[in-house]
């Protein structure tokens, strides 16, 4: 009797044992540094709330936070506008075509972050093919493309669109085709079909995709720094500057903590409405 219960107990321990390496890794490389950052934000250069006061009231910081949110919002919107039709195309295509589109869409996942970013620099640069194309059609004074809000937004949309597409596609694929047929037989077409039936049914996918893209975009660092305009900084870039150039570890940490809190708030609101577990499909 006791032997049996011992055995089941041991069995129940197994999953936890398997998780240990990951848990140790997370504690050493994530939890501990995070606590360190939190502590620094209050203690560097000395024990005060001054870092937070500046982070929340300083005009520059406020401007950068607002810009970060606006950029993330705009990128999310672009991802949605690009991703929704593509996801729809995938859901109505044959299995093979859908997989092909998925492969093309996720191609950017298989190339390194930096390579992708530099590829954009080449494409959009002053001697790049796009400028050449402008000149070829007779626009002699092409607009500045690289190091603008345009170039960083474009690159971020490119990187983040797959998250949006996969979230929406996974919901679209599960929609019973009979629902669409019913709607058509009842008199719905085009716009009204989309508005009254298809959009509401795919809303969970849209919500998932948007939250995921928005939250990831809030913390984007490399892309805006390398491709964006220096005047349109995002918060991660600003934190980087604080640490690299001014060695202001306290200030940088405080900004990081504020960003973290904002992100947590968004995820909490989302969780209340939809459940975080749904975020990953």
């Amino acid at each position: 009797m006791t032997g049996l219960s011992n055995m089941t107990e041991r069995k129940n321990l197994w999953p936890w044992l398997l998780l240990t390496p990951l848990a140790v890794f997370l504690v050493v490389f994530f939890v501990v540094p995070l606590i360190d950052v939190a502590v620094m934000s209050f203690t560097e250069p000395r024990l005060t709330f001054a870092n937070y006061e500046r982070a929340l009231t300083g005009t520059l910081y406020q401007k950068v936070f607002i810009n970060t949110f606006l950029t993330a919002g705009f990128v999310t919107l672009c991802c949605l506008l690009v991703g929704y039709p593509l996801a729809y195309l995938m859901s109505v295509s044959s299995q093979r075509t859908a997989m092909l589109i998925l492969l093309l869409v996720t191609m950017s996942f298989w190339t390194s972050f930096l390579v992708r970013t530099y590829a954009w620099m080449v494409l959009l640069g002053t001697n790049g093919p796009l400028v050449w194309l402008f000149q070829a059609v007779g626009i002699t004074n092409p607009p500045q493309l690289l190091f603008t809000r345009f170039s960083s937004t474009l690159a971020m949309v490119h990187i983040l669109a797959p998250y949006m597409i996969m979230n929406i596609y996974s919901v679209m694929r599960k929609i019973d085709p009979v629902l669409v047929r019913s709607a058509e037989s009842l008199g719905a077409r085009g716009g009204s079909l989309l508005r009254h039936v298809y959009l509401p049914l795919t809303a969970p996918g849209i919500a998932n995709g948007c939250v995921l893209v928005f939250v990831i975009c809030l913390g984007f660092y490399v892309t805006p720094v390398l491709l964006g305009s220096p005047r349109e900084q995002m918060i991660a870039g600003l934190i980087g500057t604080q640490l690299d150039e001014f060695l202001a570890f306290g200030m940088g940490s405080a900004l990081a903590m504020v960003l973290l809190v904002f992100t947590m708030v968004i995820l909490t609101i989302y969780h209340r409405h939809f459940g975080l577990d749904k975020l990953w499909g």
Binding site: D176, V178, L179, R181, S182, A183, E184, S185, L186, L201
Partner: peptide, 27 residues
Amino acid sequence: PHERNIGIVFQNYGLFPHKTAAENVYF
């Protein structure tokens, strides 16, 4: 199909899950 004015009931009903019974019939 939407121009034919033909009512269809499918085997698994095809009711819109995001609409109430009355909204489904109103559709």
